[in-house]
Nucleic acid binder design. Structure first.
Lengths: 233, 233
DNA sequence: CGGGCAGTTGACCCCGCTCAAGCGCGGTGG
DNA sequence: CCACCGCGCTTGAGCGGGGTCAACTGCCCG
């Protein structure tokens, strides 16, 4: 973690973000004053599963992964957060310790709003509170869907689905590659399978012309065919 | 569904329920006046996955299951609701169609609060709104945990875990049997496996003296051993 | 040049799914 | 009252998806 010389403006968050646009001018000013900002490098851990979370984080830049740790320390990624996303609120609002570890996978700038400040916003601004509620309910719907997927789809179907999900969430670079770059291990942790299985299936997809691979960069070529593979139901 | 001759009092909900105790006297009166109540038999569907939900339900009596439908119509149960629980709010607050089908598994009395009325409570009563938020965030934590379980634990471990979870959530009858009675199929849908696998493992647990089985009734005998089986991590 | 790590490939084998057959109990109708 | 039927449950056999282990490659970096 590195302190920033210059605190980035939160204008982005307040304008385009689904959450902060509901703040009043006064609230905006207070948050802008109170918030702290830091840079983190790939591999930095923001907080560990089981720890209390001291406030809410807003991603200014970069990408973080949220994962749980299981058998033999094997990771299961449940979600990513990118520019404009906020995280940490689940733990605060449920009054539970963090249910995931949050680690940086692409050098990130994170703004931090302390717990008390966040709770005061939630309590005093119904529109803001409603937006947070909506977020957590949308996330809950996604989690339920993923439970079905892991329980009933095979690895091949899930991998196709996750490639499409990454495509939707992160888009592509100017060269057409997925704008999120994951190791085979991370991809496996997200799909919920072994690294070797991901590698074999990526090779198969590549062989079948569904994707192109250039080291860690992946380009989806036949999106419709991938959809067919993933949309068994 | 059968209309009730007599609308049950919501006193229970307002006193003991984690949610409704935050309502003011005025709000209580309005909700009491507006709410409708009906009885449903085992097998009745309250709403289907993909449909809009018109309001929030509060369980007065009985048990319902929430499940998603996957390949070949195979169910995946994600959650149950029992006396005092409310459901339907996820769809309303996320402004999405229902992500699960809700079906009665033990004859149930359900109160219904229309969407507008519910939203007005959420908007005007911060404590109530906070309680709802807490609920959805707790549920989200549970869903994340279950993703890890399904991805990394084997069926034996998951079955042990789910028996313990049913024990915690529903308690036992005076005879010591789990107070929720599920078919083998339903148990399999919740564990996320085939019916035959559940049956084989239940036999094994019984043989090892961990549980007793009497038709559909299950008694947990060696809770600590079951915990050991389920708590691989 | 050598060590280390991500990625890849092959071999093996086991968990758990599927298919099929049989069992037992409760309900229905003759 | 018994015979039959159907559904939920149980058990066995077979097999294949995918996890694990091990060996090898290629690239980066000191």
């Amino acid at each position: 973690m590195r302190k920033l010389d210059k605190i980035p403006s939160c204008e982005f968050c307040f304008k385009d973000n689904d959450i902060f646009k509901y703040l009043t001018k006064d609230e905006y000013d207070v948050v802008s004053y109170i918030k702290t900002c830091n840079f983190f490098d790939r591999g930095d851990v923001i907080y560990h599963e089981g720890n209390r979370v001291g406030g809410v984080y807003c991603v200014n830049k970069g990408i973080v992964k949220h994962y749980k740790t299981g058998i033999d320390g094997k990771e299961q990624i449940v979600r990513f957060s990118k520019k404009g996303d906020i995280f940490g609120f689940r733990s605060i609002l449920s009054e539970e310790p963090a249910c995931t570890t949050t680690k940086v996978i692409e050098d990130a700038g994170l703004c931090f709003i302390p717990l008390d400040q966040f709770l005061s916003l939630v309590n005093n601004n119904p529109a803001f509170s409603m937006a947070i509620m909506k977020m957590s309910c949308v996330e809950l719907g996604a989690a339920n869907k993923y439970i079905l997927d892991i329980a009933q789809k095979n690895v091949r179907e899930r991998l196709a689905e996750i490639l499409l999900l990454l495509n939707d969430n992160f888009g592509v670079t100017s060269e057409g590659y997925l704008a999120i770059s994951l190791t085979r291990d991370e991809l496996a942790s997200f799909v919920g399978t072994a690294t070797e299985s991901v590698i074999r299936l990526l090779s198969e997809f590549k062989h079948d012309g569904l994707i192109e691979i250039n080291r860690r960069k992946i380009k989806l070529v036949e999106i419709n065919k991938l959809k067919k593979i993933s949309e068994i139901f």
